[in-house]
Design a binder for these strands. Structure first.
Length: 884
RNA sequence: GGGCGCAUAGCUCAGUCGGUUCAGAGCAUCUGCCUUACAAGCAGAGGGUCGGCGGUUCGAAUCCGUCUGCGCCCACCA
């Protein structure tokens, strides 16, 4: 096989992905093996791949590929989410650009456009994931709004309704006037916003609807809502306002009479101590209104405009109305003063519109029981969070959970299966036919034409929370006709979930609830939380900042393996990722390193008659042990989800141990041949390394695994078994470590003395140095002869310590005696001080009495080693002085 | 305002039970090398009062208190 001097990922990646697909290596069917299952966090169907997806899906792919090589039946289910608000607003925007307004369309017409949009843009992201190397079981691709999964949602709604946990109620909801829908509390983002605090005079009524000359002052940020005021409220303990008891005041401009009431909700020292109560447009005011039986007057429509109830400024947008009414109030003499004011204002997460608290009829799901169970799942350890700190956040939320508003005033989504009868009552059934039957049971003689289905759709999360169940069994086990499902019983519960902490409550918590409810088992065992991908300055990636690279461009430039490695290098669980293209470069460089190492190995000239050199036998023995040790470390890291640590261990194993030490050691001289045994072992190591790296860098490892020895069609590294961590002898590793340090010491001497690497250098080492490492040192430090001696005799040169072993580089006249003496004296002084410290510790009876034996023994060893070093230094100094 | 968490080298982070010759890694930096696998590389080197203060302990990066500075979540006083 011809190997180009430089690794070119583009063709290789395309080739192997096609090969994997062709052979259906990603596809899983239930069998006798242990399953390992991941369901993808479904991206928005119309979304495109961004760096967050790259991080998440790389982690997923590493886990799934690792499990596959560990012999498990690995199944990664991909799919997309219909994302009702996000998608609907995109469709609305697109239609608007074409001059079509959503209001002019029927529901059916709009949905036709939406489905067209979905067909056109939907699933692009899944194509993009293929470029990344994601080994999803594409045959199992799901969409949360496909007919089967919609049925799952509808069945779930009916299930919970019949259980009595879904109810319809009028509540103060967060209204998004731009999206024309209610959004949940979690979809509201509070931002500090500059506004004004308007102090308004409300004149006391004379009882006939006419103002007296007495007035009170209220402070409000929302003067446009005064027409909806139902009362003025003061704290009963506030003596300043006792004179107002029983009085009525007139709303400015419209002269409507409203009572003064008392409620301890009002803070005496905030504002003026007088609160205008506007039950229809403020959640707290609503509560006060309920307590005091105040009438509710809604003056804002679903677009945020004042309606007829306002009597003035009808049809004006709320913010326009605010400006206008301030002027009107000023002219009427009701505006006492205006203060600058900054307060938190709720914004819609999707549309960024200012949320309007609004009363409306919505559907709710009771959360109390679900939350209690789901909390126990995590508290009792059946679901593990990585990192663990999110347990606290989770607990806090689960203990303060409120009922879930599941209805949305949209069209794109699963329509609520409730049908209203002419008398205003309703029935809930999975289909219109069943609904009609149920309706007829209540009221004989009704026809379909008498029924009207609820206009709202369900919150998207009401479908995503079923994902780990519904992708395998869309009927859902709660259905009365449910039959056992082979896929569900095999793959559920899934194993690991990789997701961002931002959807801990939206999604993770609710999946646990649904899993507990339907399966009596949590949907996954481990939840690995990634951080947010930020740029290297720590800023969130955003379109407006333009700091978000296009992953596809990166993949094209550096290769998918490089991008994957670049993302994982700095990603410890739960930490934000500061993305820097330099990391992807590092990934590319690593690919180059692997590629070139292979070029070296593949180019070996084997001479079958050649016996194995001693240094090569040593190298093989060492690397075999080193490899086993590293595998054990990597396995441990994986078991603890320390993915970037596992990766770094492999990175150093390959680059430092394998390339810089092992290959340099066995590499024959230019033009020379190598013995067959060493080559055999080296290829074995290389293959093991490729297998270990494969989950992280699937493409280059497949390419080289296929090249390293002939493979049959249909063979793949994807199913090669993860190399097992064998026994390893640390004494072998330690001995080689000593040799490495010696080599580094000699190289350092060379560098200091400016000795060309080509010139050999005579080296003497003293007793205690492992004899089998002598050839290793000779080869790697280009030293020779290297001799094991009792003392250094009268040679001139430079000595250095490796642990407690003395080494000596013979330099002849190159030695600067004074310089060396100074160095040795300094080292000696340091060592004496060190010894003194150790002895001080050892003579402390408190220490020897309290510290564990092991620790004390360690100190005694330090003492002995230190003594031996001191002796060495003293000898070396003596020697140097004699030679002077 | 309530809760949770973080602070270790220029950057990003490890540091598992309080104890190894423990202060580490990768990247970046500096120096020297185009040495026949790799300059996207090789070899060598420098770099930290473990945020401040106090305490517990024979012993603290590690435990406790406190201060400072950051981050996240929840709530929202009109």
């Amino acid at each position: 096989m011809e190997l180009s001097a430089r690794y070119d990922p583009s063709k290789i990646e395309e080739k192997w992905y096609a090969y994997w697909l062709e052979h259906k290596f990603f596809h899983s069917e239930p069998d006798g093996r242990e399953p390992y299952t991941i369901v993808i966090p479904p991206p928005n169907v119309t979304g495109i791949l961004h760096m967050g997806h790259v991080l998440n899906n790389t982690l997923n792919d590493v886990l799934i590929r690792k499990a596959r090589m560990d012999g498990k039946n690995a199944c990664w289910v991909p799919g997309t989410d219909h994302a009702s608000i996000a998608t609907e607003s995109k469709v609305v925007a697109k239609l608007k650009a074409q001059g079509i307004s959503k209001e002019d369309l029927t529901r059916e017409e709009f949905l036709k456009y939406a489905w067209e949009w979905k067909e056109e843009h939907g699933g692009i992201i899944l194509q993009q994931l293929r470029k990344l190397g994601a080994s999803c079981d594409w045959d199992r691709t799901r969409f949360t709004m496909e007919p089967a999964l919609s049925e799952a949602v509808i069945n779930t709604f009916v299930y919970f309704y019949k259980k009595g946990w879904i109810y319809r109620g009028v509540r103060m909801v967060n209204w998004d006037p731009e999206g024309h829908t209610a959004v949940s509390d979690d979809e509201v983002i509070h931002k500090d916003t500059h506004s004004h605090f308007y102090h308004l005079r409300y004149y006391i009524s004379d009882g006939q609807g006419h103002p007296t000359d007495q007035y009170l002052v209220i402070a409000t940020t929302r003067p446009e809502t005064i027409m909806a005021d139902a009362a003025i409220c003061v704290n009963p303990a506030d003596e300043r306002y006792h004179w107002l008891r029983g009085k009525h005041v007139l709303i400015p401009l419209i002269n409507k009479e409203i009572p003064v009431i008392e409620d301890s909700y009002v803070e005496m020292d905030f504002g003026t101590g007088c609160l205008k109560v506007t039950p229809a447009h403020d959640a707290h005011d609503y509560e006060i209104g309920m307590r005091h039986n105040l009438p509710i007057l809604d003056i804002i429509d679903d677009r945020g405009r004042l309606n007829e109830n306002a009597t003035i400024l009808v049809g004006e947008d709320r913010f326009v109305a605010r400006k206008k009414i301030v002027k009107m109030l000023e002219e009427a003499g009701n505006l006492e003063k205006v203060e600058d004011y900054t307060s938190p204002v709720g914004y819609s997460e999707r549309t960024n519109a200012v949320i309007e608290p609004r009363l409306s009829a919505q559907w709710f799901l009771k959360m109390e029981d679900l939350a209690r169970e789901a909390l126990a799942s995590v508290e009792e350890g059946r679901v593990k969070f990585i990192p663990d700190k999110y347990r606290n956040t989770y607990r806090h939320w689960m203990e303060n959970v409120r009922d879930w508003c599941i209805s949305r005033q949209l069209w794109w989504g699963q329509r609520i299966p409730a049908w209203y009868l002419p008398d205003g009552s309703f029935v809930v059934e999975a289909t219109a036919e069943e609904a009609l039957k149920a309706a007829q049971a209540k009221q004989p003689g009704l026809t379909m034409a008498d029924l009207r289905q609820d206009e709202d759709v369900l919150d998207t999360w009401f479908s995503s929370w079923l994902w780990p169940v519904s992708v395998f069994d869309p009927q859902m086990p709660g259905h009365p006709d449910h039959k056992p499902n082979r896929d569900l019983s095999y793959y559920y519960p899934t194993n690991d979930l990789v997701t961002g902490p931002d959807i801990l409550f939206f999604w993770v918590a609710r999946m646990i609830m649904a899993g507990n409810e339907y399966m009596h088992a949590e949907p996954f065992r481990n939840v690995y939380f990634t951080g947010i991908v930020r740029d290297k300055l720590g800023r969130k990636m955003s379109k407006t900042l333009g700091n978000s690279p296009d992953p596809l461009v990166l993949i094209e430039k550096y290769g998918a393996d490089a991008v994957r490695l670049g993302m994982l290098l700095c990603s410890s669980a739960g930490n934000d990722i500061l993305y820097d293209e330099a990391q992807v470069e590092q990934g590319r460089n690593f690919c180059g390193k692997i590629w070139n190492a292979y070029r070296l190995v593949a180019g070996f000239q084997v001479d079958p008659a050649l016996p194995q050199r001693e240094s090569d036998a040593t190298a093989v023995r060492w690397f075999r042990n080193k490899l086993s040790q590293a595998i054990a470390t990597v396995e441990d890291h994986y078991a603890k989800f320390r993915i970037s640590d596992a990766l770094m261990t492999l990175y150093k194993l390959f680059w430092d141990d394998f390339c810089s030490w092992y290959l340099e050691l066995i590499k024959p001289a230019y033009g020379a041949s190598i013995d067959p045994e060493t080559v055999r072992c080296t290829l074995g190591f290389f293959e093991d390394l490729l297998k270990l790296i494969h989950p992280v860098m699937p493409f280059i490892t497949e390419e080289l695994w296929q090249a390293i020895q002939p493979r049959k069609e249909g063979e793949t590294i994807m199913f090669a078994a993860t190399p097992a961590a064998g026994e390893y002898d640390t004494s072998v590793i330690d001995a080689f470590e000593l040799a490495k340090e010696t080599v580094m010491g000699i190289r350092s001497v060379r560098k200091q003395k400016n000795l060309p690497p080509k010139d050999t250098l005579e080296v003497k080492v003293k007793g205690g140095f492992p004899a089998d490492m002598i050839p290793v040192v000779a080869k790697l430090a280009n030293a020779g002869p290297v001799s094991l001696v009792e003392d250094f005799g009268d040679a001139t040169g430079v000595s250095f310590m490796v642990g407690t072993v003395e080494c000596f580089a013979v330099l002849g006249g190159l030695v600067n005696v004074e310089e060396e003496l100074a160095k040795l004296e300094a080292a000696l002084a340091y060592q004496r001080q060190f010894l003194e410290n150790v002895r001080k510790k050892l003579s402390n009876e408190n220490f020897t009495a309290h510290a564990p034996e092991k620790v004390v023994a360690m100190e005694r060893k330090k003492e002995a080693d230190s003594l031996s070093k001191i002796e060495s230094y003293e000898n070396q100094i003596k020697l140097l002085k004699n030679n002077e």
